[in-house]
Amino acid sequence: MATTTIQAETKWWNGGRSPFNASYGKVMMWYFLMSDAFTFGAFLISYGTIRFSVNNWADPNHVFNAFPFAGHANLPLAFVSLMTFILIFSSVTMVLAVHEGHHMNKKGVEKYMLLTIIGGIAFLGCQAWEWTHLIAGHHDVLVNGQIEHWGTTVTKNPWGSEVMHNGTMVATPGPIAFGGYFFGITGFHGFHVLSGVVINIVMYIKTKLGHFDQRGHYEMIEKAGLYWHFVDLVWVFVFLCFYLI
């Protein structure tokens, strides 16, 4: 967006101008993000309510200890740290894209938008792997005196408390809310990342076609950036609630 010279005695709220010196699109995006924050807030508060009302919640260090191509190595939270790093790094490249947009540097915007898109897709790929690994897993669970092999799904949780069975410690079924909330909330977040990637791809194409150069400003990149940073910020909370606590 073109920068505006701010006069000393401007009456911002007197009409005929935006009181925030921002276009309607940006104001709208901020209000949308506020609204979306309430959606995630409701999800996370529901999660907290249920999680702290049941016993034997799964220990994230046990559940999330796998890494692609690492076999059965016990690497607690290593993979999710990588995912988080990728997503946060894509926020950095987004900042750089917005920065290049301010300088009307089409090539720079293209480069950094592409990196941001790659970051987003990489994150989604990681999430797909993690989900697959959880769902397809085989864990011994003692059900009605029989050993069964369970993955983690929305209806099955093999991470309950352990009991002695035939001389070895075996897990019992844990609270099924675990899978529901984990897949529900990370899925909803993943859906946001996916929308963000689609938006970024559209922005990339529009940049490539020179639409923003014709328009004289790269504000659309800025708005897509606001959304992207929001999605990252939400991930920080999701990460905190599901992996760290």
């Binding site: 009456k11 709220w13 007197n14 009409g15 005929g16 935006s18 009181p19 921002a22 309607y24 104001v27």
Partner: peptide, 9 residues
Amino acid sequence: LNMRTKGMS
């Protein structure tokens, strides 16, 4: 917020 006419505080 954004579109009030001039003078419409």
